[in-house]
Design a protein around this nucleic acid. Structure first.
Lengths: 179, 179
DNA sequence: GGCTCCATGTAAGGAGTTACATGATTCA
DNA sequence: TGAATCATGTAACTCCTTACATGGAGCC
């Protein structure tokens, strides 16, 4: 049971019964690039879930091979445990390519450091704008339940904190004694 | 050139000349679980870097087969480009297992929702404490340069923002009309 | 009748993980 | 002398990615 498996299981528990194609659309709408919503990951994952009896499929009799996926009782138990049982590793700082880069600003000439941080700031601002636009679109389309709207605000909390940090960082780096 | 390759290249550019073992230690000290600091990823990565002529190795003549790794001119160019050329995909919201889970709090009974959010809050607090401890240890050991210290503050900015968001989230979810 | 979307998949490939393997050094 | 640590690697495995493949449904 990978994180992707459990996420898909939770999606089916929340929005199901639904087809694999519908699951794919949920990922496609998502802002985060955690997974690519590619068929090559979703179909195998659903196959694993079915094999583990966490998901049951009822194939419609009609010509269209649209399968209705539903979580079983054991699947529901797995989702509940996944939600409530938050392990230590899950809560740590997340992998962040921008932060990774900032660890190395010291290696370039002092004059170039601000340029790097400013580029990071700009692209973070762009990401914030994209997240706000996505929120507006979601509102307009009336997609998702209230909890989902609240949860997705977490993206903005994260990105705004990054922006604050980068602003602070630029000031600090500028004031650094050039050794 | 994966993100891991470039990170290793940047580490060697910043802290080198150094051995593969030293690179491994840098990852082991890192708070983020982005990579596992396993030999199975680092040695192949360094091999790729050498093959691409971004890293050169001088094997010490002594019995101990400690190789001194150094970045070449082209390697240095790659690092500089990586630092300055921040692409759009890099700046988006990061994969966050806690946030992922929060999208699904709506599926459990209203009475249980706060418990989930509180568990997330607790483990985030623990992560903050760990990050602060790590900072104190780093200070005591006088490890890393000034820029590294500043960059690692980004972890605390992120975690504190998550805490704020979770606190806000719990209040919002509690006030949600139980449909 | 042909085009686009719906819907389901498979194939090849790469990267990272865990676990295993090996030998030299240092220190009690 | 034996144990821990330094130091370098390989092997098997899993999962995800990109790209390709297939066929029905609706519509103009």
């Amino acid at each position: 049971m990978t994180e992707l498996d459990l996420t898909i299981l939770a999606i089916i528990a929340r929005d199901g019964p639904m087809s694999a194609y519908d699951v794919r659309k949920v990922f496609a709408r998502s802002l985060t690039s955690t997974w690519s919503s590619s068929t090559g990951s979703i179909y195998p994952s659903i196959r694993r879930l079915q094999k583990a009896r966490h998901v049951a499929a009822t194939t419609a009799k009609g010509a269209r091979a649209r399968k209705a996926l539903r979580v079983t009782a054991s699947g529901r138990g797995a989702v509940d445990a996944w939600l409530l049982h938050i392990t230590a590793g899950v809560a740590g700082p997340t992998p962040n390519p921008i932060r990774t880069r900032m660890y190395f600003v010291g290696i370039v000439a002092p004059a170039k450091r601000s340029a790097i941080i400013r580029r990071a700031t700009e692209s973070t601002r762009a990401a914030i704008a994209a997240a706000e636009q996505a929120r507006a679109d979601r509102m307009a389309a009336d997609e998702g339940d209230a909890v989902q709207h609240l949860a997705s605000e977490g993206v903005l909390f994260e990105l705004r904190a990054r922006l604050e940090w980068l602003t602070w960082l630029e000031a600090q780096v500028r004031n650094l004694p050039s050794k």
